[in-house]
Design a protein around this nucleic acid. Structure first.
Lengths: 296, 296
DNA sequence: TAGAGTCATAGGCTGTGCCTATCCATCGTA
DNA sequence: TACGATGGATAGGCACAGCCTATGACTCTA
């Protein structure tokens, strides 16, 4: 049983004639006859009585007609659903962000995106990098925003922005008034860093490694604000990304001049995943916004 | 969009794998892949994300899946309906009968048929021959029971029984004691016949014609019982079929010996009409019963 | 009785769905 | 890191199914 057979059947039932049904269905009359006969053979009974001039539904045909229409109706509904789905930008997007980016970068993005796509529904999840990667793989988030580098090429990576790292120093520190400094200048300082698991800790440590620096870590926390208040209290120094700089009377931020003292934020998508219009809208919005940001 | 594509799609969605879906659908994996791709092309969007090892529904796929299932469910329902319809003998049969047969022949047929097919629903319509033929053509009755001859071969004709004609005479008539008579013997008699339109009038007149008899008709009625009471009152003679003979003190029935003085009752079906099991059941029952009747 | 209309049949062609063989990427494992 | 196993995509070829035109069989009408 095939769909075109059902269509032909309905056409004959409606027009009461094989010839007219064929015309209406844009096939030749013999082809249509053949398909109706094939359908009848498969069902094991006649659907129409061929009476000299006209054609009439048999009892079986009468019961079969609404069923055939039902199938075709479902089919149309399915097609309609697809069209609707493709046209809509009302879908939802789940975004995963690492904690050292979430509070600084995301809010302006989200508000401007919501203005552009009012029907879209956004969900934001704050997790550390390995969790985000797992969730990308599992499909429980659509996009992840995190810091490079990311190994493995199972992801599609779009770099968004690269920012410099800054040393956070107590206001009264001897280097606090400098325009910039080198990591080596911090060789003797006690360090306050993010807890293990936060990727920015790895970024900072990697920068130190490249500067042949082995920092002595005396305090760890889960968030920058805790670190900075400790720095302000004079317990030691820290390294923060540019976006985490916050005005504070007791803290000074000095640009780290080392070439490698940067971090790059990127948006990741699982390679091979198909993206809805809403997903694409969000991604392009993300890239556009960050490009704009760079030019400032 | 084709049904097998929807089936393949559902299979992949269920198994989470093209290969397993192909196995389950009894096609090769490339064929199935090809059809899925074709479906995706038609819809203009991916239904699955091919992720290295496994395969996962896209958002579109997720909304499309219940729709595809809906189409296939409707299809199964349609097939189920057909099977059920073919197996059932619970359908209805509309029977048309001419008035000069209805009260005599039908009752025993109907009761025995209802015993054999308790779920069948019978409808009986009593009309004169041309009306019955029209209704056969229009499909508003399934079977007609009437007297031959019928011209035109648009009908399938099954003779049921042939009965002799009898002369109905007043009890005191000079021929009333005879075992049989010839139509010519009635040459001088005034005739009472059925009204024009009743086919038995034609049957009787045709028999007279063949006997070169031109009957003088002095009374017409729509039913035999009226004629017979008038005959009993001595107004004249009449001709009736064997089955219309009724015991009466004032009427005598004498067999008409003429070869052509018979009438044949037949069942008619529109040629080319498909018959349900119930229709066939009724027809065969009719033929069987009348065959049995003949042997008595 | 000729002609128009209707469905069925016959024969031939094209497209397509299927197959096998192979390629390419990923994943698990030595 | 290299290798085989797994799973999907690609390529090439074949056979059938659906379509077409031409024609036949039949009915109804002028």
């Amino acid at each position: 049983m095939e769909l075109h057979q059902l269509r032909y059947f309905c056409a004959v039932a409606e027009t009461g004639s094989f010839s007219r049904a064929a015309e209406q269905s844009y096939v030749s009359q013999p082809s249509l006859s053949q398909q109706i006969m094939k359908l009848e053979d498969e069902l094991g009974a006649r659907l129409f009585d061929r009476l000299g001039r006209s054609v009439r539904l048999t009892d079986l045909g009468k019961t079969f007609l609404p069923r055939a229409r039902g199938v075709l109706r479902e089919l149309e509904a399915a097609k309609g659903d697809v069209v609707e789905h493709k046209d809509s930008v009302g879908g939802s997007v789940s975004i995963g962000v690492i904690p050292t980016v979430a509070p600084y970068l995301l809010p302006p993005y989200l508000t401007s995106f919501s203005q552009k796509f009012p029907q879209a529904h956004l969900t934001v999840i704050e997790e550390i990098t390995p969790v985000l990667l797992d969730r990308l793989r599992a499909g429980t988030i659509d996009v992840a925003i995190l810091a490079l580098p990311i190994r493995g090429h199972e992801f599609e990576i779009s770099p968004l922005l690269t920012e410099r790292l800054f040393a956070a120093l107590p206001a009264k520190h001897k280097l606090a008034a400098r325009r910039s400094l080198s990591l080596k200048d911090l060789r003797a300082e006690p360090f306050l860093l993010l807890r293990d698991g936060h990727c920015f800790r790895d970024t900072a440590v990697a920068a130190c490694d490249r500067a042949r620096l082995n920092p002595q870590i005396i305090f760890e926390s889960g968030q920058f604000s805790s670190l900075l208040s400790m720095v302000g209290a004079g317990m030691g120094v820290s390294i923060v990304p540019q976006m985490a700089i916050e005005k504070s009377a007791r803290c000074r931020f000095v640009r780290i001049a080392d070439d490698s003292a940067t971090r790059t934020i990127a948006a990741l998508v699982l390679r091979g995943r198909s993206l809805t219009r809403t997903h694409l809208g969000f991604l392009t919005h993300l890239c556009a916004s960050s490009a704009e940001r760079k030019t400032h």
